[in-house]
Nucleic acid binder design. Structure first.
Lengths: 183, 183
DNA sequence: CTTAAATTTCAGAAAAAACAGAAATTATAA
DNA sequence: TTATAATTTCTGTTTTTTCTGAAATTTAAG
């Protein structure tokens, strides 16, 4: 009945787990995520342990992680005392949730630090100008990028999809760049 | 004379190194990168060792890594036998180089695996349709995303910057979404 | 309230990654 | 060609992360 019976499904889960290690999640977290993503029905923790051969505590932490990223949620199965879990299956929502959370954890602290440093640099005057300048440029660059992200993220899903489908054709709307080639 | 003399510069380097660990690079790699980014002049490996307190071999590997990502290059200083290194200082180019290489290493293999699985799934007929469907949707989603990336990446830098500055205003060009709010 | 099931926390073991120092290789100059 | 400087590769150590099993806590049913 469950996903774990199908070799191709397990292959997907294993590969997903492997890739997860390159993406800031550990193997267990990514595997649990993949399993829930493929699963039709809510799964309880014990079931996940068996399917993946992981310790109960490990699965517990993985589920907490995934809930922290907003890609898995607890759900209640009537007549069953145990917690059950389901994954977000809309890939666009999943992508947005993960990117928002990663921004919060990994980009925002950088911005704060850069802002703080820039402040201090403005005061100390025995500092080579190129250092001040490069830290400033980094700050500005990341600011521009995240500002763009925050704006675009506010658009309707359908608009975003339409924009993506446009691809490089969006460049048509930029005045001075009708011949759009790299560099 | 060098960057390592300035406490604020070192603070940037240390913080950058720390953040690097969350982004797929190890601390040494990120620190070497930050040091070179702030440096005005090409630095030789020995100098980097001293500035950061790292072993020679560690620095050697970090430099190899950074060159692999295309954000650092070797350069020759006349009258000096040693290799010297400089970082890309255009942040846009740096960003593009890193994202292209990460896509190659971390996204492309997923796409291959998904394509292969989808092929096999099409053949086996005793498989719940929702599994086939979800793997298919994942494949399509990542495909759409990377297709968009490849197209946009081909645009002129100035066009890209102009597009970014437009922010959510790009949505104006999408027919059916004049009221552009989230969800 | 008591009991039992379910879950989380914690401490230590296992695995993986990062790093240092030495040895080996490569490249340059005399 | 030989000697030496520079760099890389390799091996073992240290550090960090992941994961397990047991203990503690929480939750809910009776």
């Amino acid at each position: 009945m469950g996903v774990e019976k199908y070799p191709e499904a397990m292959e997907f889960i294993l590969h997903w787990g492997e890739m997860g290690t390159h993406w800031g999640a550990n193997r267990s977290v990514a595997q649990v995520h993949a399993l829930l993503y493929l699963s039709n029905q809510p799964l309880d923790a014990e079931r996940i342990c068996e399917a993946l051969g992981l310790a109960r505590s490990n699965v517990s932490n993985a589920l907490k992680d995934l809930q922290g990223y907003g890609v898995v949620r607890r759900t209640h199965v009537p007549g069953d005392r145990r917690d059950h879990f389901v994954a977000e299956t809309d890939l666009w929502d999943m992508f947005m949730a993960i990117s928002a959370e990663r921004k919060r954890r990994e980009i925002d602290p950088i911005i704060s630090k850069l802002a703080e440093l820039e402040q201090r640099l403005a005061e100390s005057n025995d500092l080579p100008s190129h250092i001040r300048e490069r830290i400033g440029r980094m700050h500005e660059f990341i600011g521009t990028l995240t500002n763009w992200y925050e704006q675009v993220r506010g658009l309707k899903k359908s608009t975003l999809i339409a924009l993506m489908k446009l691809g490089s054709k969006v460049a048509r709307f930029i005045p001075s760049s009708n011949k759009n080639n790299s560099e």
